[in-house]
Write a protein that binds this DNA or RNA. Structure first.
Length: 255
DNA sequence: ATGTCGTGGACGCCACGA
């Protein structure tokens, strides 16, 4: 199975790039984040024409996640048990079974600043996600959870650790929240960067950050035991050219 | 790094989020 995850920063704006990307890369399952579309506005015709079924969880302006699959989508769950909100739950998680694999597409809250209530929300959301994933694992099925975690797991996952002093995405509590998810029964699938030494998946639009490779690895793929990972890479070509997302897709070959 | 995007509401700009 070929599985990919991609924060597209508006599915509406990215559709002209997504459709040829699907034809080129041929993923069996694609996990999307930041679709920024209500479910009723999802371009299902174009997605179906490309050969995929789609399950979505979106509310329109912000957030929004989706699963595209050409190997079936069963048992779709939008959100998860005891999912924290701000104050109400947002559209940040969707899971389904595709080809016998339980897959989750997640868009973790940004957190904004460490002293922000959004940061506390981020930590509580990650803690609740851990519990929901543990419940899925307890059912004995292989699970892959992937998406925009908005946390760089190590200092090697940001272009300059010094530049992130006092910022979110690199704090110890955020990294501990990731560690607790891993401890529930997952392995961090670190993808191969196709250029340079750093497996960055995100580069800010501003200040020529992409061209200077000043990026971050915040789009993560966590695979449970029972999932054999053969290879994984970052499609940085998708970050180039006119009208890209600020995130690159991560593509993983499984079992 | 703070140099750009995308969104929606009221508009050819602004406020917000990232």
């Amino acid at each position: 199975m070929r599985l990919a995850t991609w924060n597209v920063n508006s599915l509406k704006m990215r559709l002209p790039r997504l459709v040829p990307w699907l034809a080129d890369k041929q993923p069996d399952v694609l996990l999307l984040q930041e679709t920024k579309l209500a479910d009723a506005a999802i371009p299902t015709a174009e997605i179906k024409e490309a050969g995929y079924e789609v399950a979505t969880h979106g509310d329109g302006r912000w957030n929004g996640v989706a699963i595209l699959s050409r190997i079936g989508i069963e048992d779709v769950v939008r959100g998860f048990a005891a999912e924290p909100g701000f104050p109400d739950p947002e559209t940040r998680a969707i899971s389904a079974t595709c080809g016998g694999l339980r897959v989750w597409s997640v868009y973790v809250p940004n957190g904004r600043e460490p002293d922000s209530p959004h940061y506390a929300y981020k930590l509580s959301w990650l803690a609740a996600l851990r519990d929901a994933l543990a419940a899925d694992l307890a059912m004995g099925q292989p699970v892959v959870v992937a998406g925009d975690f908005n946390v760089a797991p190590t200092d090697a996952d940001v272009w300059d650790p010094k530049a992130f002093a006092g910022s979110t995405h690199v704090t110890a509590p955020e990294r501990e929240a990731l560690a607790r998810i891993l401890a529930a029964g997952f392995t961090d699938v670190v993808p191969t960067p196709m250029k340079g030494p750093h497996p960055f998946t995100y580069w800010d639009y501003r200040a020529g950050m992409f061209h200077q490779n000043m990026g971050m690895r915040i789009d993560l793929v966590y695979a449970s035991a029972g999932v054999t990972v053969r290879s994984a890479y970052i499609d940085r070509e998708a970050r180039k050219g006119k009208g890209p997302s600020d995130h690159a897709p991560v593509v993983v070959e499984l079992t």
